[in-house]
Design a protein around this nucleic acid. Structure first.
Lengths: 310, 310
DNA sequence: CAGCGCGATGCAAAAATTGCACTGCTTGCC
DNA sequence: GGCAAGCAGTGCAATTTTTGCATCGCGCTG
């Protein structure tokens, strides 16, 4: 899209914080890039960047303008997607920001199912925590976000929510494996494997643990659920996940690992969390993204009829 | 704005319906213009125009794309206005579509008052009837519309409304001048000067007249209130206006013409109409337009405290 | 059938963008 | 304190892109 190049260049310079670095990335000389930027600033009658000794940085006008540029790109993508849809073949590119939870089973399944119907649609998955996911929606680097944590920013529109009780995962032969439900005090003396402090699961656990003084040992902290799960094969310990990550709940047996079992935590001890399925408020999503969003909400509503809202 | 030229060109071609005519208007050769369009269609991978023997016409993809282009322009204007506002001086251009009613006193006064505060803001006033005003909002040729008629399109957001009772205007020495209120049957035998059928005033009058069979003579139809008003100086007859057009109502004496008086129609005979102050739904207006909209609503609320809603 | 107006295209002229070499500036490191 | 490195900006020539002219082919109209 030739007419967007100058705008794209500004976006890249803003991200890189330096004209030369951006020029490298864009495979042109810094001087050409520099002049394009000067030209646009001139046409606009406004500086967009502060010139610092180590590079450039957006000023207030620049922030506003770059936000505009990004929305231009997002809107162009929407228009292209809409136009392509006219010819019957759905094309497009869907960018998703998601926590690790939803990346385990929910999204792989949902995307494969969607792509079976619309093979011309491609996907981009960014794994991140709540705050970053919200930032990505805002900077239009993500169309859709799946966040298992409270929503902080006002610019996020929550299209649907899914209540999820935290489950305790353990080897099938663990002493707690027979319980229907696990209470916090059951964890006394156990070895725990916990997700990092930024994760929504960890935050809910911490809230519960704060209230009751339970003595236990945290032997490992990781941001990789896969690693933690595999660790349980080698050392008997406990870790925590939510149903969508393990394919359990909603009447389905857990199918994630024959050697492990998952048991829900007592809701009185650890509150249920909420998975938020969001997009940027006021934004019209590209056809592909909008339909995928519909699909995923429908799927969740079918799988967990009682836990989905809105 | 150099990077928008190609898009602007497409917009003009779409409006003109012919590449050559558009080229004339844009002061370039048709061949240059033609090639720009071919290039963009090529980049987009989609035809935007149907080639007809007498010129070109947008196809469905083109309609979508042109709508996108117009929203780009409108959004760029908003961004520029917002950036200019940073420096303290409000700049910008406000486009208003309005019926003739509001163009008589309300808008001249309001705009002059606003420009006294913000001399760098310019205005564009298009006089039109309801349907066209709505179309202008949609094609982004107008930021704000003042419509004295029912709103038809779903894409219009009504920011405020003002109830207006139709007044009958007559020479000060007319036999009805002594009445507090005019009833339809009082018009029997009178000569009437009526606005055109498209006008909201006329539609309300017609609705009233349909119910009661009143025998009177329509001696003149015009879309110019000014003409009708001046006509009354030469031939004693009756014409009709709403308070905002004559500066009457809300406790103010009518000040529009010392030789004429305005008397309200009986609401039982002719229903009160509604002036709608609108903008396009979901659109973020440029700073200048948004503030002007605020101003005008505040002014109306001060002048007619009981008739303004929302 | 001739004439007109339309969009498309080959080719040369004009205009723009780009890359190279270099400037002036600041920072950080020896 | 001086020197190297990294940064944005600039003059000039090379290159690429855009434009204008002449012209074609097509479909409609009188």
């Amino acid at each position: 899209m030739r007419f967007m190049t100058s705008l794209k260049f500004i976006d890249v310079v803003a991200r890189e914080g330096s004209i030369r670095k951006a020029a490298d990335k864009l495979a042109i000389t810094s001087t050409a890039l520099n002049r394009r930027i000067l030209q646009i600033e001139d046409e606009l009658g406004q500086q967009l960047f502060e010139r610092l000794p180590g590079g450039v940085r957006l000023n207030t006008a620049g922030e506003i303008f770059v936000q505009h540029i990004r929305s231009q790109f997002a809107d162009l993508a929407r228009v292209q997607s809409q136009i392509a849809d006219l010819s019957g073949i759905r094309r497009g590119h869907v960018q998703i920001a998601s926590g690790a939870d939803a990346l385990r089973r929910l999204l792989p399944e949902a995307i494969a199912k969607y792509r079976a119907k619309h093979p011309a649609v491609s996907f981009d998955l960014a794994r991140c925590y709540g705050d970053e996911a919200e930032a990505r929606l805002f900077s239009l680097d993500a169309d859709i976000a799946l966040i298992f944590a409270p929503i902080r920013a006002a610019h996020v529109h929550v299209a649907a929510t899914l209540r999820q009780q935290i489950h305790c995962v353990m080897p099938a032969d663990h002493r707690l494996a027979g319980r229907e439900q696990i209470k916090l005090r059951d964890l006394a003396g156990e070895s725990l494997v916990l997700p990092t402090a930024q994760s929504g699961v960890r935050q809910l656990l911490d809230t519960g643990l704060l209230r009751r003084q339970v003595d236990m040992e945290v032997i490992l902290e990781s941001d990789s659920f896969e690693f933690m799960q595999n660790f349980l094969h080698f050392e008997s310990s406990l870790f925590f996940q939510i149903p969508i990550a393990i394919g359990a709940g909603g009447g389905r047996e857990n199918e994630f690992d024959p050697l492990l079992v998952a048991r829900p935590m007592d809701p009185a001890d650890v509150a249920a969390g909420t998975l938020h399925i969001c997009h940027l408020k006021g934004r019209v999503l590209p056809v592909a993204a909008a339909k995928f969003l519909d699909d995923i909400i429908t799927t969740l509503r079918d799988t967990y009829p009682d836990e989905v809202d809105q």
